[in-house]
Amino acid sequence: MRVADIQRFCTHDGPGLRTTVFFKGCPLRCVWCHNPETQKFESEMMLHTALCAGCGACVEICPAGAQILTQTDRYRKVELCVGCGACAGACPTEACRAVGREMTPEQVADAVCEDAVFYATEGGVTLSGGEPLCTDGIEQLVPLLKKRGLHVLVETAGACESARLARVAPYVDEFYFDIKHTDPQKHRELTGALPDAILHNLALLDSLGARIRLRCLLVNGLTTEKEHFERVAALYHSLVHCTGVQLLRYHPMGGSKAAALGLADSGRREWIPTEEQIRRAAQILTEHKVPIFL
């Protein structure tokens, strides 16, 4: 399994104190993605220029000449980078970093269980990404975590193989299921894919009795229309095991990570939703008798 990061003491990824595992790789390309380092399935390099001490160790060691360090410039030529990781090894400050570590399901479970003593009755592990359900080995990992007595939560956009989803579902305590957009065309514009397969997977999960919370990211001008939330409400009512809808606010923090990957800084302040938009979305859902989580 390729793990982008394991974060501890997480309090925003499910009930209680949790450890969140971020997996590499996602089939969607949401324009607002706040974890761009988890889009690619392969390991890749990041350069955090703010941490760079300007020592030149990476320039010396890079076999492809991708690291540029001059009096005025400090960047990485992404097109030249072969992803060998030599720069990360040589860098003394972790300005050059490799994202994507190979781990076995057992190793992931062991790493998660190091904090089991802190989970108390509510906490546990959250599998996130990327799209965790697209990660090879997830079918082994999830039962393993369950076997070790942990509360398992999966954050998914549902963009995965149905058969795999069905195999994993019995071992998952709760799914946080992203609804990117309810208009099929807009869904394609914003994520690069049509929602049909995703909605099929949502219905499948529900039919399997899985506990589901829908999550909607509010992005000013992109996902804030009234009709969208009316359709979300309808979607909620079409499900039997859905506990409600959580409204999330867009934040532009993913932008700096994109920059570190050598991509254009995608963070946009104008996408941050207004309080009024959040209030209105909550109001529409409430009017349609949908329980909401803020």
């Binding site: 309090t11 925003h12 104190l17 904090d115 108390a120 509510e122 906490g123």
Partner: peptide
Amino acid sequence: GTLEGENGLCALEGLMQGFCAL
């Protein structure tokens, strides 16, 4: 910011319980 809502309290409780257990 990490301690907002019910979850923040659960996290603090978990931290204290783990501290004792270890």
